[in-house]
Simulated scan of single mutants.
Amino acid sequence: MFKFADDTTVVGLITNNDETAYREEVRVLGVWCQENNLSLNVSKTKEMIVDFRKQEREHPPIHIEGTVVEKVESFKFLGVHITDKLNWSTHTDSVVKTAQQRLFNLRRLKKFGLSPKSLTNFYRCTIESILSGCITAWYGNCSAHNRKALQRVVRTAQRITGGKLPALQDTYTTRCHRKAKKIIKDNNHPSHCLFTPLSSRRRGQYRCIKAGTERLKNSFYLKAIRLLNSHH
Results as ranks from 00 to 15, higher is better:
A5S: 08
D7N: 12
T8P: 02
V11Y: 13
G12F: 06
T15Y: 11
N16I: 01
N16P: 04
E19H: 07
T20H: 14
Y22H: 15
Y22M: 14
E25Y: 10
E25H: 11
G30S: 14
L40F: 12
S43L: 09
M48V: 02
I49C: 07
D51F: 07
D51G: 14
K54Q: 11
Q55V: 03
R57C: 09
H59I: 15
H59L: 12
P60D: 15
I62W: 15
T67Y: 03
V68F: 05
K71D: 12
E73I: 12
F77Y: 11
G79R: 01
G79I: 05
H81D: 00
T83P: 09
K85Q: 08
W88H: 09
H91V: 03
T92K: 06
S94D: 03
K97P: 01
R102K: 14
L103Y: 10
R108C: 13
K110G: 07
P116R: 11
P116T: 07
K117Y: 12
L119C: 00
F122R: 05
C125F: 10
T126F: 13
E128P: 02
S129I: 13
C134K: 07
W138M: 06
N141G: 01
H145W: 05
H145T: 08
N146P: 08
R147C: 03
R152S: 06
A157N: 15
R159N: 15
R159E: 10
T171Y: 01
Y172G: 03
R175Y: 08
H177I: 00
A180S: 04
K181I: 00
K181S: 03
H189R: 02
S191C: 09
S191N: 12
S191V: 04
L198W: 01
L198R: 15
Q205L: 13
R207A: 10
C208M: 12
C208V: 08
A211Q: 06
G212F: 07
L216T: 06
N218P: 04
Y221I: 14
Y221Q: 13
I225D: 09
H231M: 00
